[in-house]
């Protein structure tokens, strides 16, 4: 019965979705939201990557809200886990084989370097704080899988996360004091296409990268290390 209702509902949704999708032309030029950003973006923000310009500059306040959602999810996760009193037992961890261990030790700094590169060059080439932060967090995931027993210090990851959020808000408030708008670009734009350009955009993306990287690494740390007792 439940299945029948579900499938009828699914059919209705599918029909509606199909009718609306078939009205949208694929790849046709026309009136677009991003036209202004593409034409004037480099002049106005100094960033050659227009997606970065939209995320950090035009929709910067929105990005702050999204980072807050991320923070809230991580905090809720910590609160849910924290309801269990942990027994201080250290289960014997089976070490990974030598090849896996050495491979992970070798790859870890390389992935960290790539992640940092992606964060720093966010305003010039594809990439930025969100992607670079995710790459950095995946390096920590690799470390947890390959070299069990090593942990991030919790205070360090919390501190970096708070530092990222604080830096974002401080930059925004400084812009408010100098230019009258939250996240006003108060630094000189410089020459587009060079590493030090686009004013506060690289700084904000650095803050976002710090925040996303430490947040996701902290989530993985929670999931791997603090749920052992739950599954007994």
């Amino acid at each position: 019965m439940r299945k029948l209702i579900s499938i009828i509902l699914l059919g209705i949704v599918a029909t509606g979705l199909f009718m609306s999708i078939s009205q949208i032309p694929f790849g046709e030029p026309g009136e677009r939201m991003g036209d202004h950003f593409i034409r004037e973006g480099v002049k106005e923000t100094g960033a050659t990557n227009i997606v970065t310009a939209v995320v950090v500059s035009y929709r910067g306040f929105d990005t702050l809200g999204e980072v807050t959602v991320l923070f809230t999810a991580a905090m809720g996760l910590g609160a849910v886990i924290g309801l269990v009193r942990r027994k201080k037992t250290h289960p014997v961890i089976e070490p990974a084989s030598l090849i896996v261990y050495t491979g992970c030790r070798f790859l870890f700094p390389v992935i960290l370097l790539v992640g940092t590169y992606i964060v720093i060059h966010g305003h010039l080439t594809p990439g930025g704080g969100f992607q670079g932060g995710a790459v950095v967090a995946s390096a920590f995931l690799l470390m947890y899988l390959g070299c069990r027993g090593k942990r991030i210090r919790e205070n360090l990851s919390r501190g970096l996360e708070s530092l990222g959020g604080l830096l974002f808000i401080l930059l925004g408030v400084t812009g408010l004091l100098i230019g009258g708008d939250f996240l006003f670009n108060f630094l000189p734009l410089g020459e587009a296409g060079t590493l030090i350009s686009a004013g506060i955009i690289p700084l904000i993306y650095l803050a976002v990268g710090l925040k996303v990287g430490s947040e996701l690494a902290g989530i993985i740390d929670h999931l791997i290390e603090n749920t052992d007792e739950l599954s007994e």
Binding site: V51, G128, Q131, V135, I219, T227, S231
Partner: peptide, 25 residues
């Protein structure tokens, strides 16, 4: 390319890791 980078790092690496841990637990 921006979205492809994010999806490759998150969808293929992090989400899979999280799911594998959860299935193990």
């Amino acid at each position: 390319p921006d979205v492809a980078m994010a999806e490759a790092a998150i969808g293929a690496a992090l989400v899979t890791g999280i799911f594998v841990i959860a299935v193990k637990r």
